[in-house]
Simulated assay, not measured.
Amino acid sequence: MASGRSITFAPRRAVLAAALSAVCVHAAAAPSCARPVYLTFDTGHMGVAPLVAEVLARQQVRVTFFAAHERTREGDGSLGAHWAGWWKARAAEGHEFASHTFDHVYWRADLPDGRFRMQASAGPLEGQRQTWTEAQVCAEIDRAAQRLRELTGRAPLPLFRAPGGKTSPRLLQTARGCGYAHVGWSAAGFLGDELSSESHPNAALLEKALRTVRGGDILMAHLGIWSRRDPWAPAVLEPLIVGLKERGFCFRTLREHPDYRAWIAARE
Protein backbone atom coordinates (compact mmCIF):
# COMPACT_ATOMS: atom_id res chain seq x y z
CA MET A 1 0.00 0.00 0.00
CA ALA A 2 2.79 2.44 0.86
CA SER A 3 4.44 1.77 -2.49
CA GLY A 4 1.19 2.61 -4.25
CA ARG A 5 0.91 6.01 -2.46
CA SER A 6 4.50 6.85 -3.39
CA ILE A 7 3.80 6.36 -7.10
CA THR A 8 0.52 8.22 -6.97
CA PHE A 9 1.89 11.35 -5.33
CA ALA A 10 5.29 11.56 -7.02
CA PRO A 11 6.08 15.08 -8.29
CA ARG A 12 5.00 15.57 -11.87
CA ARG A 13 8.41 16.96 -12.82
CA ALA A 14 10.15 13.76 -11.71
CA VAL A 15 7.66 11.58 -13.57
CA LEU A 16 8.13 13.65 -16.72
CA ALA A 17 11.91 13.45 -16.41
CA ALA A 18 11.78 9.67 -16.08
CA ALA A 19 9.53 9.39 -19.13
CA LEU A 20 11.81 11.59 -21.22
CA SER A 21 14.81 9.55 -20.12
CA ALA A 22 13.13 6.35 -21.26
CA VAL A 23 12.32 7.89 -24.64
CA CYS A 24 15.94 8.99 -25.09
CA VAL A 25 17.27 5.54 -24.22
CA HIS A 26 14.84 3.94 -26.72
CA ALA A 27 15.85 6.40 -29.44
CA ALA A 28 19.54 5.80 -28.78
CA ALA A 29 19.00 2.03 -29.04
CA ALA A 30 17.06 2.24 -32.33
CA PRO A 31 19.23 1.12 -35.24
CA SER A 32 20.26 3.75 -37.77
CA CYS A 33 19.70 3.15 -41.46
CA ALA A 34 22.61 4.62 -43.38
CA ARG A 35 22.45 1.96 -46.14
CA PRO A 36 18.78 1.19 -46.87
CA VAL A 37 17.59 -1.26 -49.48
CA TYR A 38 13.98 -1.64 -50.56
CA LEU A 39 12.84 -5.24 -50.98
CA THR A 40 9.71 -5.63 -53.10
CA PHE A 41 7.66 -8.65 -54.17
CA ASP A 42 5.38 -9.02 -57.16
CA THR A 43 2.64 -11.63 -57.07
CA GLY A 44 2.80 -14.93 -58.93
CA HIS A 45 1.45 -18.39 -58.22
CA MET A 46 1.72 -17.71 -54.44
CA GLY A 47 3.28 -21.10 -53.76
CA VAL A 48 6.08 -19.57 -51.69
CA ALA A 49 3.95 -16.84 -50.10
CA PRO A 50 3.65 -18.58 -46.69
CA LEU A 51 7.41 -19.16 -46.58
CA VAL A 52 8.13 -15.55 -47.58
CA ALA A 53 5.87 -14.34 -44.77
CA GLU A 54 7.66 -16.57 -42.24
CA VAL A 55 11.10 -15.35 -43.27
CA LEU A 56 10.11 -11.68 -43.22
CA ALA A 57 8.58 -12.05 -39.75
CA ARG A 58 11.59 -13.95 -38.39
CA GLN A 59 14.03 -11.40 -39.82
CA GLN A 60 11.79 -8.44 -38.86
CA VAL A 61 11.91 -7.06 -42.39
CA ARG A 62 9.12 -5.01 -43.93
CA VAL A 63 8.66 -4.96 -47.69
CA THR A 64 6.40 -3.55 -50.39
CA PHE A 65 4.11 -5.95 -52.26
CA PHE A 66 2.95 -5.17 -55.81
CA ALA A 67 -0.17 -7.21 -56.40
CA ALA A 68 -2.12 -8.39 -59.43
CA HIS A 69 -4.92 -10.98 -59.55
CA GLU A 70 -2.83 -13.79 -61.03
CA ARG A 71 -3.53 -17.48 -61.42
CA THR A 72 -2.35 -19.43 -58.37
CA ARG A 73 -1.49 -23.01 -57.46
CA GLU A 74 -4.36 -23.08 -54.99
CA GLY A 75 -7.38 -20.88 -54.47
CA ASP A 76 -9.14 -18.40 -56.70
CA GLY A 77 -6.26 -16.14 -57.71
CA SER A 78 -3.71 -14.07 -55.80
CA LEU A 79 -6.27 -11.39 -54.89
CA GLY A 80 -9.12 -13.83 -54.38
CA ALA A 81 -10.91 -14.95 -51.24
CA HIS A 82 -8.53 -17.84 -50.60
CA TRP A 83 -5.61 -15.46 -49.99
CA ALA A 84 -7.57 -12.72 -48.21
CA GLY A 85 -6.33 -13.75 -44.77
CA TRP A 86 -2.74 -13.81 -45.95
CA TRP A 87 -2.93 -10.21 -47.19
CA LYS A 88 -4.69 -9.07 -44.01
CA ALA A 89 -1.94 -10.60 -41.88
CA ARG A 90 0.78 -8.87 -43.89
CA ALA A 91 -0.95 -5.53 -43.35
CA ALA A 92 -1.01 -6.16 -39.60
CA GLU A 93 2.75 -6.73 -39.73
CA GLY A 94 3.34 -3.30 -41.26
CA HIS A 95 4.12 -4.16 -44.87
CA GLU A 96 3.11 -1.83 -47.71
CA PHE A 97 1.09 -2.57 -50.84
CA ALA A 98 0.70 -1.17 -54.34
CA SER A 99 -0.91 -2.02 -57.69
CA HIS A 100 0.62 -4.36 -60.25
CA THR A 101 -2.50 -3.90 -62.46
CA PHE A 102 -5.42 -6.23 -61.78
CA ASP A 103 -5.11 -8.62 -64.74
CA HIS A 104 -1.31 -8.33 -64.94
CA VAL A 105 -1.61 -6.29 -68.12
CA TYR A 106 1.51 -5.66 -70.19
CA TRP A 107 2.10 -2.47 -72.16
CA ARG A 108 2.95 -3.42 -75.75
CA ALA A 109 2.96 -0.15 -77.71
CA ASP A 110 1.84 3.47 -77.89
CA LEU A 111 -0.61 4.01 -80.75
CA PRO A 112 -0.72 7.10 -83.01
CA ASP A 113 -4.25 8.03 -81.87
CA GLY A 114 -3.16 8.40 -78.21
CA ARG A 115 -4.30 4.96 -77.14
CA PHE A 116 -2.19 1.98 -76.06
CA ARG A 117 -1.72 -1.59 -77.17
CA MET A 118 -2.04 -3.78 -74.04
CA GLN A 119 -2.07 -7.52 -73.32
CA ALA A 120 -3.28 -9.23 -70.14
CA SER A 121 -1.54 -12.34 -68.83
CA ALA A 122 -4.36 -13.14 -66.38
CA GLY A 123 -8.12 -12.79 -66.22
CA PRO A 124 -10.83 -13.43 -68.82
CA LEU A 125 -8.90 -11.73 -71.65
CA GLU A 126 -5.60 -13.48 -70.95
CA GLY A 127 -3.30 -13.45 -73.95
CA GLN A 128 -5.47 -11.14 -76.06
CA ARG A 129 -4.14 -7.90 -77.51
CA GLN A 130 -6.36 -4.94 -76.63
CA THR A 131 -6.51 -1.26 -77.52
CA TRP A 132 -6.98 0.92 -74.46
CA THR A 133 -7.63 4.57 -73.76
CA GLU A 134 -5.86 6.48 -71.02
CA ALA A 135 -8.99 6.09 -68.88
CA GLN A 136 -8.84 2.30 -69.24
CA VAL A 137 -5.18 2.26 -68.15
CA CYS A 138 -6.06 4.27 -65.05
CA ALA A 139 -9.04 2.04 -64.28
CA GLU A 140 -6.87 -1.08 -64.48
CA ILE A 141 -4.31 0.31 -62.04
CA ASP A 142 -7.11 1.52 -59.76
CA ARG A 143 -8.80 -1.85 -59.78
CA ALA A 144 -5.88 -3.64 -58.16
CA ALA A 145 -5.39 -0.81 -55.67
CA GLN A 146 -9.03 -0.94 -54.62
CA ARG A 147 -8.91 -4.70 -54.19
CA LEU A 148 -5.83 -4.34 -51.98
CA ARG A 149 -7.71 -1.81 -49.87
CA GLU A 150 -10.56 -4.30 -49.44
CA LEU A 151 -8.21 -7.14 -48.49
CA THR A 152 -5.89 -5.28 -46.15
CA GLY A 153 -8.13 -2.59 -44.69
CA ARG A 154 -5.39 -0.08 -45.54
CA ALA A 155 -4.88 2.42 -48.32
CA PRO A 156 -2.25 1.13 -50.75
CA LEU A 157 0.60 3.40 -51.77
CA PRO A 158 -0.08 5.65 -54.80
CA LEU A 159 2.49 3.64 -56.76
CA PHE A 160 2.31 0.92 -59.37
CA ARG A 161 4.63 -1.47 -61.14
CA ALA A 162 3.96 -2.34 -64.76
CA PRO A 163 4.17 -6.09 -65.46
CA GLY A 164 7.59 -6.91 -66.79
CA GLY A 165 8.58 -3.32 -66.03
CA LYS A 166 7.44 -2.50 -69.57
CA THR A 167 6.39 1.12 -70.02
CA SER A 168 6.68 4.14 -72.28
CA PRO A 169 7.03 7.82 -71.33
CA ARG A 170 3.41 8.35 -72.41
CA LEU A 171 2.16 5.46 -70.29
CA LEU A 172 4.04 6.79 -67.26
CA GLN A 173 2.61 10.27 -67.84
CA THR A 174 -0.88 8.80 -68.05
CA ALA A 175 -0.41 6.91 -64.78
CA ARG A 176 0.90 9.96 -62.97
CA GLY A 177 -2.09 11.90 -64.24
CA CYS A 178 -4.38 9.49 -62.40
CA GLY A 179 -2.25 9.53 -59.24
CA TYR A 180 0.27 6.69 -59.62
CA ALA A 181 4.06 6.90 -59.85
CA HIS A 182 5.80 3.94 -61.45
CA VAL A 183 8.38 1.85 -59.55
CA GLY A 184 10.82 -0.37 -61.37
CA TRP A 185 13.91 -1.94 -59.79
CA SER A 186 17.63 -1.35 -59.68
CA ALA A 187 19.96 -3.21 -62.02
CA ALA A 188 21.47 -5.15 -59.12
CA GLY A 189 18.02 -5.44 -57.59
CA PHE A 190 16.82 -7.87 -60.24
CA LEU A 191 17.18 -10.96 -58.05
CA GLY A 192 16.69 -13.44 -60.89
CA ASP A 193 13.95 -15.62 -59.46
CA GLU A 194 12.17 -15.73 -62.83
CA LEU A 195 15.23 -16.97 -64.72
CA SER A 196 15.94 -20.60 -65.57
CA SER A 197 17.30 -22.45 -62.54
CA GLU A 198 19.48 -24.52 -64.88
CA SER A 199 21.37 -21.51 -66.23
CA HIS A 200 21.00 -19.36 -63.09
CA PRO A 201 21.20 -21.65 -60.01
CA ASN A 202 20.21 -20.28 -56.65
CA ALA A 203 23.74 -20.25 -55.27
CA ALA A 204 24.92 -18.07 -58.14
CA LEU A 205 21.98 -15.67 -57.77
CA LEU A 206 22.67 -15.31 -54.05
CA GLU A 207 26.37 -14.68 -54.59
CA LYS A 208 25.69 -12.08 -57.28
CA ALA A 209 23.16 -10.18 -55.15
CA LEU A 210 25.43 -10.10 -52.11
CA ARG A 211 28.27 -8.84 -54.29
CA THR A 212 26.43 -6.21 -56.34
CA VAL A 213 23.57 -4.73 -54.27
CA ARG A 214 24.24 -1.18 -53.12
CA GLY A 215 22.55 1.17 -50.67
CA GLY A 216 19.40 2.72 -52.11
CA ASP A 217 18.69 -0.20 -54.45
CA ILE A 218 15.15 -1.43 -55.06
CA LEU A 219 15.13 -5.24 -55.04
CA MET A 220 12.50 -7.33 -56.84
CA ALA A 221 11.36 -10.94 -56.44
CA HIS A 222 8.08 -12.82 -56.78
CA LEU A 223 5.67 -14.87 -54.68
CA GLY A 224 6.06 -17.75 -57.10
CA ILE A 225 7.29 -18.27 -60.67
CA TRP A 226 5.70 -21.05 -62.72
CA SER A 227 8.66 -21.66 -65.03
CA ARG A 228 11.45 -21.99 -62.46
CA ARG A 229 12.04 -25.61 -61.47
CA ASP A 230 14.18 -24.90 -58.39
CA PRO A 231 12.27 -22.19 -56.47
CA TRP A 232 14.33 -19.16 -55.49
CA ALA A 233 12.77 -18.11 -52.19
CA PRO A 234 13.37 -21.30 -50.10
CA ALA A 235 17.08 -21.28 -50.93
CA VAL A 236 17.94 -17.59 -51.28
CA LEU A 237 15.59 -15.24 -49.45
CA GLU A 238 16.74 -15.68 -45.85
CA PRO A 239 20.47 -16.03 -46.65
CA LEU A 240 20.18 -12.88 -48.75
CA ILE A 241 18.53 -10.89 -45.96
CA VAL A 242 21.03 -12.14 -43.37
CA GLY A 243 23.97 -11.50 -45.68
CA LEU A 244 22.88 -7.97 -46.50
CA LYS A 245 22.36 -7.20 -42.82
CA GLU A 246 25.88 -8.48 -42.08
CA ARG A 247 27.18 -6.06 -44.71
CA GLY A 248 25.53 -3.13 -42.98
CA PHE A 249 22.34 -2.85 -45.04
CA CYS A 250 18.90 -2.28 -43.57
CA PHE A 251 15.47 -2.86 -45.08
CA ARG A 252 12.79 -0.22 -45.62
CA THR A 253 9.51 0.01 -47.53
CA LEU A 254 8.99 2.30 -50.50
CA ARG A 255 7.09 4.70 -48.26
CA GLU A 256 10.53 5.79 -47.06
CA HIS A 257 12.26 5.89 -50.44
CA PRO A 258 13.59 9.40 -51.18
CA ASP A 259 12.23 9.31 -54.74
CA TYR A 260 8.67 8.59 -53.56
CA ARG A 261 8.29 10.03 -50.03
CA ALA A 262 6.99 13.41 -51.16
CA TRP A 263 4.72 11.91 -53.82
CA ILE A 264 3.14 9.57 -51.25
CA ALA A 265 2.79 12.24 -48.55
CA ALA A 266 1.06 14.62 -50.96
CA ARG A 267 -1.61 12.01 -51.72
CA GLU A 268 -2.47 10.77 -48.26
Rank of each mutant, 00 (worst) to 15 (best):
M1F: 12
F9E: 07
R13F: 13
L16D: 09
V23I: 14
V25T: 13
H26N: 12
A27R: 14
A28D: 13
C33A: 15
C33Q: 10
R35W: 03
R35A: 12
V37P: 04
Y38L: 03
D42Y: 06
G44K: 05
H45I: 15
M46L: 09
E54L: 02
F66C: 03
E70L: 14
R71D: 07
D76R: 07
G80N: 08
A81W: 11
H95Y: 00
H95P: 03
A98F: 00
A98T: 03
H100L: 03
H100C: 07
F102V: 03
D103I: 05
H104D: 04
R108Q: 15
L111Q: 12
P112H: 11
G114A: 11
R115E: 13
F116E: 01
F116W: 04
M118I: 07
S121T: 14
G123H: 06
G127F: 09
Q128K: 14
T133D: 07
V137N: 06
I141C: 10
D142G: 04
A145E: 06
Q146N: 13
R147H: 01
R147N: 05
T152S: 06
A155Q: 15
R161C: 02
A162Y: 02
T167K: 01
R176A: 14
V183S: 07
V183D: 01
G189A: 07
F190A: 12
L191V: 06
L195C: 01
H200G: 00
P201N: 01
L210M: 07
L210S: 04
L210R: 03
T212W: 07
R214M: 11
R214L: 12
L219R: 02
L219T: 08
A221P: 08
W226R: 14
W226I: 13
S227A: 15
D230F: 07
V236P: 01
L244T: 04
G248M: 13
G248A: 13
F249D: 04
F249G: 08
F251P: 11
L254H: 09
R255D: 00
Y260F: 12
A262K: 09
W263F: 11
E268G: 09
